[in-house]
Simulated scan of single mutants.
Amino acid sequence: MDIHAFKEDMIAYSKEIGIDKIGIASPDVFTELKERLRTQQELGYQSGFEKGSLEERTEPKRHVTEAKSIISIALAYPSKLKNAPRSTKEERRGIFCRASWGQDYHDVLNDRLEKLAAYLKEKYPGFTWRSMVDTGELSDRAVAERAGIGFTGKNTNLITPEYGSYVYLGEMITNIPFTPDDPVDDSCGDCNICVDACPTGALVQGNQLNAQKCIAFLTQTKGFLPDEYRGVIGNRIYGCDTCQTVCPKNKKKDFHLHPEMEPDPEVVKPKLKPLLSISNREFKETFGHISGSWRGKKPLQRNAILALAHYKDETAVEELVRVMKQDPRPVIRGTAAWALGKIGVPSSYDEILLARDKEEDEDVLEEMEKGLRYFHPLNK
Protein backbone atom coordinates (compact mmCIF):
# COMPACT_ATOMS: atom_id res chain seq x y z
CA MET A 1 0.00 0.00 0.00
CA ASP A 2 1.15 3.51 -0.83
CA ILE A 3 0.85 5.08 2.63
CA HIS A 4 1.44 8.60 1.34
CA ALA A 5 -1.40 8.30 -1.20
CA PHE A 6 -3.59 6.67 1.47
CA LYS A 7 -2.95 9.61 3.79
CA GLU A 8 -3.96 12.07 1.07
CA ASP A 9 -7.15 10.09 0.43
CA MET A 10 -7.95 10.08 4.14
CA ILE A 11 -7.46 13.84 4.37
CA ALA A 12 -9.78 14.35 1.42
CA TYR A 13 -12.39 12.10 3.03
CA SER A 14 -12.08 13.94 6.35
CA LYS A 15 -13.18 17.13 4.61
CA GLU A 16 -16.22 15.35 3.20
CA ILE A 17 -17.41 14.35 6.69
CA GLY A 18 -16.92 17.78 8.22
CA ILE A 19 -13.47 17.74 9.77
CA ASP A 20 -11.96 21.20 9.37
CA LYS A 21 -8.34 20.32 10.04
CA ILE A 22 -6.44 17.05 10.36
CA GLY A 23 -2.85 16.19 11.14
CA ILE A 24 -0.65 13.25 12.06
CA ALA A 25 1.46 12.91 15.20
CA SER A 26 3.92 10.20 16.15
CA PRO A 27 2.91 7.93 19.06
CA ASP A 28 6.19 8.53 20.89
CA VAL A 29 6.13 9.39 24.58
CA PHE A 30 5.22 13.02 25.31
CA THR A 31 8.36 13.58 27.40
CA GLU A 32 8.11 17.35 27.85
CA LEU A 33 4.42 17.10 28.68
CA LYS A 34 5.16 14.45 31.30
CA GLU A 35 7.58 16.79 33.06
CA ARG A 36 5.14 19.68 32.83
CA LEU A 37 2.31 17.58 34.26
CA ARG A 38 4.56 16.39 37.06
CA THR A 39 5.32 20.02 37.91
CA GLN A 40 1.60 20.86 37.83
CA GLN A 41 0.93 18.04 40.27
CA GLU A 42 3.68 19.17 42.62
CA LEU A 43 2.41 22.75 42.60
CA GLY A 44 -1.22 21.70 43.12
CA TYR A 45 -2.27 23.37 39.86
CA GLN A 46 -4.42 20.53 38.50
CA SER A 47 -8.20 20.68 38.39
CA GLY A 48 -8.87 17.14 39.57
CA PHE A 49 -10.90 16.38 36.45
CA GLU A 50 -7.86 14.83 34.73
CA LYS A 51 -8.13 11.18 33.79
CA GLY A 52 -5.45 8.53 34.16
CA SER A 53 -1.96 8.30 35.58
CA LEU A 54 0.99 10.40 34.43
CA GLU A 55 2.09 7.50 32.23
CA GLU A 56 -1.35 6.91 30.74
CA ARG A 57 -1.60 10.60 29.88
CA THR A 58 1.73 10.74 28.07
CA GLU A 59 2.40 7.28 26.61
CA PRO A 60 0.05 6.54 23.67
CA LYS A 61 1.20 2.93 23.31
CA ARG A 62 -0.33 2.13 26.67
CA HIS A 63 -3.69 2.49 24.90
CA VAL A 64 -2.86 0.90 21.53
CA THR A 65 0.18 -1.35 21.90
CA GLU A 66 0.91 -1.46 18.16
CA ALA A 67 0.40 2.29 17.68
CA LYS A 68 2.20 3.76 14.65
CA SER A 69 0.52 7.16 14.42
CA ILE A 70 -2.05 9.44 16.04
CA ILE A 71 -4.60 11.24 13.89
CA SER A 72 -5.53 14.64 15.33
CA ILE A 73 -8.68 16.44 14.22
CA ALA A 74 -10.02 19.95 14.78
CA LEU A 75 -13.48 21.42 14.23
CA ALA A 76 -14.04 25.17 14.35
CA TYR A 77 -16.86 26.57 16.46
CA PRO A 78 -18.62 29.98 16.44
CA SER A 79 -17.33 32.86 18.51
CA LYS A 80 -20.17 35.31 17.96
CA LEU A 81 -23.78 34.86 19.03
CA LYS A 82 -26.33 35.86 16.40
CA ASN A 83 -29.48 37.60 17.64
CA ALA A 84 -28.22 37.65 21.21
CA PRO A 85 -30.97 38.59 23.68
CA ARG A 86 -30.32 41.65 25.82
CA SER A 87 -29.94 41.55 29.56
CA THR A 88 -32.30 44.08 31.19
CA LYS A 89 -32.78 45.33 34.73
CA GLU A 90 -35.96 43.27 34.98
CA GLU A 91 -34.53 40.15 33.35
CA ARG A 92 -30.81 39.72 33.93
CA ARG A 93 -29.07 37.02 31.93
CA GLY A 94 -26.06 34.77 32.40
CA ILE A 95 -23.70 33.40 29.77
CA PHE A 96 -22.21 30.03 28.87
CA CYS A 97 -18.71 30.03 27.41
CA ARG A 98 -18.40 29.56 23.65
CA ALA A 99 -17.10 26.00 23.98
CA SER A 100 -20.51 25.06 25.40
CA TRP A 101 -22.58 26.55 22.58
CA GLY A 102 -24.56 24.17 20.40
CA GLN A 103 -24.64 20.39 20.70
CA ASP A 104 -22.18 18.82 23.13
CA TYR A 105 -18.86 18.81 21.26
CA HIS A 106 -17.97 15.39 22.65
CA ASP A 107 -20.85 13.95 20.62
CA VAL A 108 -19.99 15.96 17.50
CA LEU A 109 -16.31 15.00 17.44
CA ASN A 110 -16.96 11.39 18.35
CA ASP A 111 -19.36 11.23 15.41
CA ARG A 112 -16.60 12.46 13.07
CA LEU A 113 -14.04 10.07 14.56
CA GLU A 114 -16.42 7.12 14.22
CA LYS A 115 -16.98 7.93 10.55
CA LEU A 116 -13.25 8.28 10.00
CA ALA A 117 -12.59 4.97 11.77
CA ALA A 118 -15.19 3.19 9.61
CA TYR A 119 -13.45 4.55 6.50
CA LEU A 120 -10.00 3.45 7.68
CA LYS A 121 -11.25 0.03 8.75
CA GLU A 122 -12.61 -0.55 5.27
CA LYS A 123 -9.37 0.53 3.59
CA TYR A 124 -6.69 -0.85 5.91
CA PRO A 125 -6.64 -4.61 6.78
CA GLY A 126 -6.07 -5.32 10.46
CA PHE A 127 -6.87 -1.75 11.47
CA THR A 128 -6.82 -1.13 15.22
CA TRP A 129 -7.51 2.19 16.95
CA ARG A 130 -8.75 4.08 19.96
CA SER A 131 -10.37 7.51 19.81
CA MET A 132 -10.49 10.18 22.51
CA VAL A 133 -12.22 13.54 22.89
CA ASP A 134 -11.45 15.68 25.94
CA THR A 135 -12.27 13.05 28.58
CA GLY A 136 -9.63 10.54 27.43
CA GLU A 137 -6.21 10.15 29.02
CA LEU A 138 -4.19 11.87 26.31
CA SER A 139 -3.90 15.65 26.09
CA ASP A 140 -5.87 16.69 22.99
CA ARG A 141 -3.83 19.87 22.84
CA ALA A 142 -0.43 18.16 23.06
CA VAL A 143 -1.39 15.70 20.30
CA ALA A 144 -2.72 18.48 18.08
CA GLU A 145 0.42 20.54 18.62
CA ARG A 146 2.66 17.63 17.65
CA ALA A 147 0.42 16.96 14.63
CA GLY A 148 0.85 20.48 13.28
CA ILE A 149 -2.75 21.58 13.90
CA GLY A 150 -1.54 24.66 15.76
CA PHE A 151 0.66 25.85 18.61
CA THR A 152 -0.04 26.26 22.30
CA GLY A 153 -0.46 29.93 23.18
CA LYS A 154 0.41 31.57 26.46
CA ASN A 155 -3.24 31.11 27.45
CA THR A 156 -2.62 27.32 27.22
CA ASN A 157 -5.14 27.01 24.36
CA LEU A 158 -4.22 25.53 21.01
CA ILE A 159 -4.12 28.31 18.42
CA THR A 160 -4.57 27.45 14.75
CA PRO A 161 -3.59 29.81 11.93
CA GLU A 162 -7.01 29.47 10.31
CA TYR A 163 -9.49 29.42 13.19
CA GLY A 164 -7.61 30.90 16.12
CA SER A 165 -8.25 28.97 19.33
CA TYR A 166 -11.95 28.47 18.65
CA VAL A 167 -11.55 24.78 17.82
CA TYR A 168 -12.58 21.50 19.39
CA LEU A 169 -9.96 18.76 19.35
CA GLY A 170 -9.96 14.98 19.26
CA GLU A 171 -7.59 12.20 18.30
CA MET A 172 -7.35 8.61 17.16
CA ILE A 173 -4.41 6.36 18.02
CA THR A 174 -3.91 3.90 15.13
CA ASN A 175 -1.63 1.14 13.90
CA ILE A 176 -1.32 2.80 10.48
CA PRO A 177 2.23 4.06 9.79
CA PHE A 178 1.24 7.50 8.53
CA THR A 179 4.08 10.01 8.21
CA PRO A 180 3.93 12.64 10.98
CA ASP A 181 3.28 16.27 10.08
CA ASP A 182 5.53 19.14 11.08
CA PRO A 183 4.63 21.28 14.12
CA VAL A 184 3.55 24.90 13.71
CA ASP A 185 5.86 27.61 15.02
CA ASP A 186 4.81 29.42 18.20
CA SER A 187 4.01 33.01 17.26
CA CYS A 188 2.90 34.58 20.56
CA GLY A 189 6.18 36.48 20.69
CA ASP A 190 6.26 39.16 23.38
CA CYS A 191 2.46 39.37 23.59
CA ASN A 192 1.26 38.86 27.15
CA ILE A 193 -2.30 40.16 26.85
CA CYS A 194 -4.02 36.96 27.98
CA VAL A 195 -1.85 36.59 31.08
CA ASP A 196 -2.52 40.19 32.09
CA ALA A 197 -6.26 39.92 31.39
CA CYS A 198 -6.98 36.73 33.36
CA PRO A 199 -9.58 37.78 35.98
CA THR A 200 -8.17 35.60 38.77
CA GLY A 201 -4.48 35.43 37.87
CA ALA A 202 -4.91 31.75 36.99
CA LEU A 203 -2.41 32.18 34.16
CA VAL A 204 0.60 32.18 36.45
CA GLN A 205 2.82 32.91 33.47
CA GLY A 206 2.75 32.19 29.76
CA ASN A 207 1.88 28.51 29.16
CA GLN A 208 1.29 27.77 32.85
CA LEU A 209 -2.22 27.60 34.28
CA ASN A 210 -3.25 27.12 37.89
CA ALA A 211 -6.54 25.33 37.17
CA GLN A 212 -7.64 25.77 40.80
CA LYS A 213 -7.93 29.52 40.19
CA CYS A 214 -9.37 29.35 36.65
CA ILE A 215 -12.95 30.59 36.38
CA ALA A 216 -13.68 27.89 33.80
CA PHE A 217 -12.88 25.34 36.51
CA LEU A 218 -14.47 27.24 39.38
CA THR A 219 -17.84 27.45 37.61
CA GLN A 220 -17.88 23.64 37.47
CA THR A 221 -17.27 23.03 41.16
CA LYS A 222 -20.20 21.98 43.34
CA GLY A 223 -19.34 23.49 46.73
CA PHE A 224 -19.39 27.07 47.96
CA LEU A 225 -17.36 29.31 45.69
CA PRO A 226 -14.40 30.74 47.64
CA ASP A 227 -15.04 34.32 48.74
CA GLU A 228 -12.14 35.78 46.76
CA TYR A 229 -13.66 34.68 43.45
CA ARG A 230 -17.27 35.73 43.95
CA GLY A 231 -16.59 39.27 42.84
CA VAL A 232 -14.97 38.30 39.54
CA ILE A 233 -17.29 35.59 38.27
CA GLY A 234 -19.63 38.25 36.87
CA ASN A 235 -22.54 36.74 34.95
CA ARG A 236 -20.69 33.59 33.91
CA ILE A 237 -22.87 30.51 34.32
CA TYR A 238 -20.36 28.07 32.89
CA GLY A 239 -16.79 28.54 31.73
CA CYS A 240 -14.78 31.63 30.88
CA ASP A 241 -13.62 33.07 27.56
CA THR A 242 -11.51 36.03 28.64
CA CYS A 243 -8.13 34.62 27.65
CA GLN A 244 -9.55 33.79 24.22
CA THR A 245 -11.50 36.96 23.52
CA VAL A 246 -8.50 39.20 24.25
CA CYS A 247 -6.13 37.15 22.10
CA PRO A 248 -5.03 39.00 18.92
CA LYS A 249 -4.92 35.65 17.09
CA ASN A 250 -8.70 35.41 17.53
CA LYS A 251 -9.50 38.80 16.04
CA LYS A 252 -12.28 38.44 13.44
CA LYS A 253 -12.32 34.64 13.89
CA ASP A 254 -15.93 33.49 13.76
CA PHE A 255 -16.87 30.33 11.88
CA HIS A 256 -20.32 28.82 11.46
CA LEU A 257 -19.39 25.63 9.63
CA HIS A 258 -21.39 23.01 11.51
CA PRO A 259 -25.17 23.21 12.09
CA GLU A 260 -24.85 21.16 15.30
CA MET A 261 -22.67 23.86 16.83
CA GLU A 262 -25.06 26.74 16.24
CA PRO A 263 -26.16 28.07 19.64
CA ASP A 264 -29.69 28.77 20.77
CA PRO A 265 -29.41 32.31 22.19
CA GLU A 266 -32.02 31.62 24.88
CA VAL A 267 -30.10 28.56 26.04
CA VAL A 268 -26.55 29.95 26.10
CA LYS A 269 -27.57 33.35 27.44
CA PRO A 270 -30.36 32.30 29.81
CA LYS A 271 -32.48 34.40 32.13
CA LEU A 272 -31.09 34.05 35.64
CA LYS A 273 -34.14 34.06 37.87
CA PRO A 274 -35.93 31.13 36.18
CA LEU A 275 -32.80 29.02 36.71
CA LEU A 276 -33.38 29.10 40.46
CA SER A 277 -36.64 27.16 40.25
CA ILE A 278 -36.03 24.98 37.21
CA SER A 279 -36.97 21.31 37.69
CA ASN A 280 -34.65 18.43 36.84
CA ARG A 281 -36.83 17.58 33.87
CA GLU A 282 -36.86 21.16 32.57
CA PHE A 283 -33.12 21.42 33.06
CA LYS A 284 -32.48 18.27 31.04
CA GLU A 285 -34.86 19.34 28.27
CA THR A 286 -33.35 22.84 28.03
CA PHE A 287 -29.65 22.30 28.71
CA GLY A 288 -29.10 18.55 28.45
CA HIS A 289 -27.73 18.71 24.90
CA ILE A 290 -24.90 21.16 25.67
CA SER A 291 -21.56 20.28 27.27
CA GLY A 292 -22.09 22.84 30.03
CA SER A 293 -24.75 20.64 31.62
CA TRP A 294 -22.43 17.76 32.47
CA ARG A 295 -22.11 18.67 36.16
CA GLY A 296 -25.86 18.99 36.62
CA LYS A 297 -27.91 22.00 37.60
CA LYS A 298 -26.50 22.69 41.08
CA PRO A 299 -23.27 24.50 40.02
CA LEU A 300 -25.17 26.49 37.38
CA GLN A 301 -27.81 27.55 39.91
CA ARG A 302 -25.14 28.58 42.39
CA ASN A 303 -23.45 30.61 39.64
CA ALA A 304 -26.79 32.17 38.68
CA ILE A 305 -27.24 33.34 42.28
CA LEU A 306 -23.74 34.84 42.24
CA ALA A 307 -24.57 36.58 38.97
CA LEU A 308 -27.73 38.09 40.47
CA ALA A 309 -25.59 39.37 43.34
CA HIS A 310 -23.12 40.77 40.82
CA TYR A 311 -25.94 42.73 39.20
CA LYS A 312 -27.37 43.69 42.62
CA ASP A 313 -30.69 42.60 41.14
CA GLU A 314 -33.38 43.78 43.54
CA THR A 315 -36.08 42.09 41.46
CA ALA A 316 -34.57 38.72 42.45
CA VAL A 317 -34.84 39.27 46.21
CA GLU A 318 -38.20 37.52 46.65
CA GLU A 319 -36.96 34.45 44.79
CA LEU A 320 -33.66 34.42 46.66
CA VAL A 321 -35.52 34.54 49.99
CA ARG A 322 -37.58 31.54 48.90
CA VAL A 323 -34.43 29.67 47.91
CA MET A 324 -32.67 30.55 51.18
CA LYS A 325 -35.60 29.24 53.20
CA GLN A 326 -36.77 26.27 51.19
CA ASP A 327 -34.02 24.78 49.00
CA PRO A 328 -32.85 21.43 50.43
CA ARG A 329 -29.21 21.96 49.30
CA PRO A 330 -26.94 23.81 51.75
CA VAL A 331 -24.74 25.32 49.02
CA ILE A 332 -27.74 26.90 47.32
CA ARG A 333 -29.34 28.13 50.57
CA GLY A 334 -26.10 29.61 51.82
CA THR A 335 -25.16 31.27 48.54
CA ALA A 336 -28.64 32.81 48.37
CA ALA A 337 -28.23 34.24 51.88
CA TRP A 338 -24.86 35.75 50.95
CA ALA A 339 -26.36 37.18 47.75
CA LEU A 340 -29.21 38.82 49.65
CA GLY A 341 -26.67 40.63 51.75
CA LYS A 342 -24.66 41.62 48.70
CA ILE A 343 -27.76 43.04 46.97
CA GLY A 344 -28.58 44.92 50.15
CA VAL A 345 -32.35 45.47 50.11
CA PRO A 346 -33.12 46.45 53.77
CA SER A 347 -35.94 43.91 54.20
CA SER A 348 -33.48 41.10 53.44
CA TYR A 349 -31.79 41.65 56.80
CA ASP A 350 -34.85 40.45 58.71
CA GLU A 351 -35.40 37.61 56.25
CA ILE A 352 -31.89 36.30 56.84
CA LEU A 353 -32.40 36.55 60.62
CA LEU A 354 -35.66 34.57 60.40
CA ALA A 355 -34.03 31.90 58.25
CA ARG A 356 -31.00 31.75 60.55
CA ASP A 357 -33.20 30.84 63.50
CA LYS A 358 -34.31 27.67 61.71
CA GLU A 359 -31.04 26.81 59.96
CA GLU A 360 -28.96 23.90 61.28
CA ASP A 361 -26.19 23.58 58.71
CA GLU A 362 -22.97 25.22 59.95
CA ASP A 363 -21.77 26.22 56.48
CA VAL A 364 -25.09 27.87 55.67
CA LEU A 365 -25.06 29.70 59.00
CA GLU A 366 -21.60 31.04 58.14
CA GLU A 367 -22.89 32.33 54.80
CA MET A 368 -25.82 33.95 56.55
CA GLU A 369 -23.41 35.80 58.83
CA LYS A 370 -21.51 37.01 55.77
CA GLY A 371 -24.77 38.24 54.29
CA LEU A 372 -25.77 40.04 57.49
CA ARG A 373 -22.38 41.79 57.68
CA TYR A 374 -23.15 43.58 54.42
CA PHE A 375 -25.77 45.55 56.33
CA HIS A 376 -23.17 46.59 58.92
CA PRO A 377 -20.06 47.57 56.95
CA LEU A 378 -18.06 48.36 60.09
CA ASN A 379 -18.45 44.75 61.22
CA LYS A 380 -17.09 43.19 58.01
Rank of each mutant, 00 (worst) to 15 (best):
Y238S: 07
A304Q: 04
I343Y: 00
S348P: 03
L320A: 02
C247L: 03
C247D: 01
T315C: 00
S347N: 03
R322V: 08
P299S: 09
I290N: 02
R281K: 15
K249R: 10
T315V: 13
Y311H: 13
G231P: 09
S347I: 04
I233H: 04
G292V: 03
A304D: 05
D241F: 09
G344Y: 07
K273H: 02
R230N: 06
D327P: 01
V268K: 00
T242V: 15
R236G: 01
G344P: 02
I237Y: 07
K284H: 14
S348A: 15
T245K: 15
W338A: 05
S348C: 04
K252A: 11
P299V: 04
K251M: 09
A316P: 00
R230Y: 11
K312E: 01
P328K: 09
A339I: 13
E266F: 07
S279K: 03
K251V: 13
E318F: 01
D350Y: 12
N280E: 13
P299W: 06
G344A: 11
T245M: 13
P299A: 07
A316V: 07
G288R: 14
G234S: 12
A304K: 05
G234C: 07
R236W: 09
F287Y: 15
P263L: 04
R322Y: 05
G234H: 03
T286H: 06
P248W: 13
S291F: 10
G231R: 11
I233G: 04
C243M: 09
K253N: 11
Y238M: 01
K249W: 12
L257K: 13
D313C: 13
G341Y: 05
G288E: 13
H289W: 02
Y349S: 05
V267R: 05
E314Y: 11
A336I: 06
T242W: 01
Q244R: 10
G239C: 01
K284E: 11
D350S: 13
R236D: 01
L300S: 01
G231C: 05
L257F: 14
D350P: 00
Q326M: 10
K252L: 03
G231Q: 07
P265N: 14
Q301V: 15
I237G: 00
K284T: 07
S291T: 13
E285I: 14
A307W: 08
